[in-house]
Amino acid sequence: MHLDHSHDTTTVVSADAARSDGTRRALRIGLGGPVGSGKTATVAALCRALRDTYSIAVVTNDIYTREDAEFLLRNAVLPPERIQAVETGACPHTAIRDDISANLEAVEDLEDAVGPLDLILVESGGDNLTATFSKGLVDAQVFVIDVAGGDDIPRKGGPGVTTADLLVVNKTDLAPYVGSDLGRMAHDARTQRGELPVAFTSLTSGEGVKPVADWVRGQLAAWSA
């Protein structure tokens, strides 16, 4: 027997684009970023914006509570059976990057329970600027920072800021109060990221999550094309 021998793949291959019955599985998008930047608020807003068009589920990776999952439940952005909380042993970056087994199990359980799904959003608990998702877990990732965390974060870079498929700079409504220069953040982000997109959002005002929702729609269209 050889390592490349093909085995029944119901659970074995994490990044396979097809389900075991041959149909295309749900697109998986990761949302990471520092503590309190607005990841859960973004997930909630995305669910509201997209749930009438797509079949959606959410996996949260909390650090020591079920806070994120409970916020989503309380706000009834999705029925409870579409939300799963993964426990991370104090290390969300391990659970989303180095050892993704518990997250993949949650993804599988959601597909079993409420599938077929179009989209699974995987939120990482707030972590540091180097925390990124494994390609074995997600197909695309969003890094969410906010203007109140300091307008020098795009300049500092790091894997999240530099390589995420979408960088979201959230809480633009707070910029005047915390002295953050949005123009400078946009310029620094472009320097770090080249052609990769950046969205400025305020979830409490204006068009809210729309720029992110539009980007997700684009990803979904490309995924199912």
């Binding site: 426990e87 991370t88 042993g89 290390c91 659970a95 180095d98 050892d99 087994s101 518990a102």
Partner: peptide, 11 residues
């Protein structure tokens, strides 16, 4: 300990 089998989340 880095073998990715979920043990890191258990005490």
């Amino acid at each position: 300990g880095r073998f990715p089998a979920g043990g890191h989340a258990h005490s």
